[in-house]
Design a protein around this nucleic acid. Structure first.
Lengths: 131, 131
DNA sequence: ATGTGGCCTCCAGTTACTGGAGGGTCAAGG
DNA sequence: CCTTGACCCTCCAGTAACTGGAGGCCACAT
């Protein structure tokens, strides 16, 4: 399979696949013409990567997960730990976003949004921090 | 005021303040010894920036908001639009995170997390995409 | 004089790609 | 046989918003 084929199958852009090779996530063979030659194994790994990335795992997490995936003697506890830590990061980020959202939606609602300059949003941003 | 003073007042790291000068958000004067010399105006702008960044606005948004803040003839509608668009981005990101969270927390719960290799997390990641 | 801390500039690295330039390769149509 | 268009290749640079570090000046207290 050429890179275009695995791109279509995995949903990953061609550029991204080349990048994944650069950073050592996959190691496809090369044809005599220099084209990357993907086996089923790599096509499968790319789908794995695409799904893991879609769940928000970092590239380093993906590297770890891929190693565990290929290790028949893994302990599921190791996988679970990686996932759990990622879940914690997601939850932290959701909490951050929720706080921003609450503040901001409140301010947006309070702003008239007309042609006058008075604006509670700017007032809030410009108010001296409470020390 | 030296950079350390405005850093303490705004809560922004010294490095960040220098960076903000680099990209033209602030333009402090210089003392004869080369030190940046901040006036109240800049200290205030830095607090503004800190708050806007804490609400997740991008630097470019901050640039726009700062310009509006300094423009007595602004229309609050312009401010509101910037904020509303940012709120939309936040909501989109929250939805993305929630989807990740739902999938991942389900998988984490399903994983035994013991010393055996069987793992629903890896099974999910490794399953061929449904085409 | 010396030590400590604050300040300076410039360079490089971070994350995970993405775009583009410049240039080979392959299969089909004329 | 040649050309055309779709692929493929490498290498370089840029993105967002900083952050860390090297190397070195400046100010003030001892």
């Amino acid at each position: 399979m050429n890179i275009g084929d695995v791109s279509a199958r995995s949903g990953l852009p061609v550029k991204t696949i080349r990048y994944y090779e650069d950073i050592g996530l996959i190691s496809p063979l090369r044809d005599t013409n220099g084209y990357r030659s993907f086996r089923e194994r790599e096509a499968h790994m790319l789908s794995f990567l695409g799904r893991a990335r879609a769940l928000g795992f970092t590239i380093e997490d993906c590297r770890t997960l891929l190693a565990l995936y290929n290790d028949e003697t893994r302990a599921s506890a190791d996988v679970k730990m990686v996932a759990r830590e990622h879940l914690d990061r997601i939850e932290a980020k959701m909490a951050d976003l929720k706080a921003m959202h609450d503040t901001l939606s409140h301010l947006v609602r309070a702003c008239a949004g007309d042609d006058r300059p008075d604006c509670p949003i700017l007032e809030d941003l410009g108010r001296t921090a409470p020390n």
